[in-house]
Amino acid sequence: MMQKVFSKPQALKDCPTHYCPGCGHGIAHRLIAETIDELGIRGRTIGIAPVGCAVLAYDYFDVDMVEVAHGRAPAVATGMKRTNPDKIIFSYQGDGDLAAIGTGEIIHAAHRGEQITVIFINNAVFGMTGGQMAPTTILNQVTTTTPLGRDASKQGYPLQVSELLTLLPGTIYIERCSLHKPALIRNAKKAIKHAFELQLNNAPGLSLVELLSPCPTYWRMTPVKAIEWMENEMTKVFPLGRLKG
């Protein structure tokens, strides 16, 4: 008799998403929803959606959600956690949101050791607005604002946020994972669950999981080519691993 061993988690609403075919957001959403189901925390969790492709995350996560100003999610999360220490607060942010406009907010939330969980989706472009360069766009990568490829002498270097944040004593757990292979996605699930468990156990400090995520549409690749590019190029610039905690 066949037993079902894998299905959509409850914390993920049963509806189509607006994400492009092969987009990593859908995978990240499922891993977080599985974690919420497995830890049984739907009734205590409040999620924060960024401005970016995932701004509509409140249509997909079946928990209390808020959508906030671009880059300000860590500050909103701070306001929520400080006044509701018993709630589980997660901030879901893209690379434009967290590493461009919101750099100040994530560094200060980390430096204060806010007991929140940050899920940082790094897909190396601004997706929602049409594929412009992001702080994490890698060198020579063509985007709609680096038509000749990112040139360090003009646009600087890809920003390694996770490494940056490991220097702050206020961070207790930082891991960079990737969504381009099932084995790595399993590991990403473990990392996300660990981050949520730290918050659940009032561990003193901020936990952040960076997820390298495919963006086939604005990398101008097929989804399969995109995961190959992540394997061959992206993980060189953004090495995977548990950086802290």
């Binding site: 066949m2 037993q3 079902k4 061993v5 894998f6 299905s7 959509k8 988690p9 993920l12 189509p16 998403t17 994400y19 075919p21 092969g22 987009c23 990593g24 957001h25 859908g26 995978i27 499922r30 969504l179 292979k181 099932p182 996605i185 399993r186």
Partner: peptide, 12 residues
């Protein structure tokens, strides 16, 4: 696991 749409159920 890799499906971005959570569109696949698996039985064993």
């Amino acid at each position: 696991i890799i499906c971005p749409e959570a569109a696949i159920e698996v039985y064993r």
